[in-house]
Design a binder for these strands. Structure first.
Lengths: 128, 128
DNA sequence: ATACCCTGCGTACCACGGTACGGAGTCAAG
DNA sequence: CTTGACTCCGTACCGTGGTACGCAGGGTAT
């Protein structure tokens, strides 16, 4: 396990040095035991953890949920993992529905505004 | 134009008193001219403005953008309103695509996890 | 050895949309 | 006249995901 410095770990994870430290503060990455010298070492385990965080983040989990997922990863609690996935999917569906609705109404307003040239602007009138 | 107190205005707009004051600070609602007494009065114009904010917010605009929309409402600048609507639709499309992608991958993982009962949990393994 | 970079650490700050609190003034009812 | 509800105003704080900065020490190249 070759020793990495924080900047190398950050680079391998595609994040900044400050972000690694931020994750450490949030308990997502765990502070490595203090080495005798000021500089601490990170290994492939830390790189895996960091990539796990980025992957889970891409799936829409927030950092506090990712902390729980990391814990499940230790205990291999599949039922809980499925439950969290279901919850997250439900939230994603709700978010998508909300945005789609906003998009549809806004799209219609923009269309009306472009076609009709009389009266007040439909976009502004819709909110008024 | 019957005079309203801040709590009545807030109630008509479906927000809290603190939120009205927050919008005033953000320039979305404009402080009414100081009355002689400490208590200030609000009218139907303020109610319209507050409702405009909530409507525009539902369409996915952020407060800073709504401030601009309110300004367009004064000047009736339709081209700019259409431009903002287009920009907002583009952003909504990007957001919807991102969430849909997250939903699809997570949905597949949950399915795999429910069907296959051997090996490590696919949900957790996907991030690992 | 001296300059320069990187390290850990703590703290403050950013956007975003609010929420909460404390002090002082005002107003109407009892 | 006192009580209680309401108002104004400023300021600080919440969660979310970071970013930035300054300090003191250690590592490395010239």
């Amino acid at each position: 396990m070759k020793a990495l410095r924080i900047s190398e770990l950050a680079q391998k994870g595609g994040v900044g040095v400050e972000t690694v430290r931020f994750y450490q503060r949030k308990g997502l990455l765990g502070h490595p035991g203090s080495a005798v010298s000021g500089t601490r070492h990170y290994g492939s385990e830390d790189v895996r953890r960091l990539r796990f965080v980025k992957q889970a983040q891409a799936a829409g989990f927030k950092l506090s949920e990712i902390a729980e997922l990391l814990d499940l990863n230790r205990t291999d609690d599949r039922p809980r993992a499925r439950e969290m996935a279901r919850e997250r999917i439900g939230q994603l569906d709700a978010d998508i529905a909300r945005l789609s609705s906003a998009r549809a109404s806004l799209s219609k307003l923009a269309e009306d505004c472009a076609s009709g040239c009389d009266g007040p602007c439909p976009i502004l009138a819709a909110f008024d």
